[in-house]
Computed example of a mutant assay.
Amino acid sequence: MTDINACQAAPEAEFNDYIALLKPRVMSLVVFTAFVGLWVAPVDVHPFLAFCSVLFIALGGGASGALNMWYDSDIDAVMRRTQSRPIPAGRVQRGEALAVGLALAGLSVMMLGLVANWFAALFLAFTIFFYAVVYTIWLKRWTPQNIVIGGAAGAFPPMIGWACATGGVSIESLLMFALIFFWTPPHFWALALFMRDDYKEAGVPMLTVTHGRPVTRRHIFAYTLVLAPFSLWLGFTSVGGALYLAVAVVLNAAFVRGGWQILRRSEEAARADDFAVEKRVFKLSLTYLFLHFLALLGQNWLGAW
Rank of each mutant, 00 (worst) to 15 (best):
Y135R: 12
F156C: 07
A222S: 14
P229S: 05
V249H: 04
V250M: 07
T166L: 02
G150P: 11
L139E: 00
Y199E: 02
V169M: 14
F181E: 02
H219K: 08
K200Q: 14
V148A: 12
A178D: 00
A192L: 11
K200R: 15
M206H: 11
R213Y: 06
R280E: 09
P144T: 07
V239H: 02
G154D: 02
D274G: 07
A254F: 10
A253K: 12
G154R: 01
G150V: 10
F230W: 03
E267I: 11
L179D: 08
A192K: 13
E278A: 11
G161C: 02
L175I: 05
F156P: 00
I147Y: 01
L139A: 01
L232F: 12
G167A: 06
I147K: 09
M195Y: 13
Y244E: 03
L175V: 07
G203Q: 12
N146G: 07
P214K: 14
F188N: 04
G235T: 03
G167Q: 04
R218D: 09
Y199G: 11
H211R: 15
V249Q: 06
A192E: 04
A269L: 10
W233H: 09
A276G: 00
W142V: 05
I262P: 06
L245R: 06
F230Y: 05
Y244S: 06
G241I: 08
H187S: 08
V148H: 08
A242V: 14
A254M: 13
L227R: 06
Y244I: 06
E268H: 14
M159E: 00
F181Y: 14
V134W: 03
V226K: 04
S231M: 05
A253G: 15
E267D: 14
Y199K: 14
I262Y: 05
A163Y: 03
G212V: 09
V250N: 07
N252R: 02
L175K: 10
E268A: 15
P144M: 07
H211V: 05
Q145H: 11
A178R: 10
R218L: 04
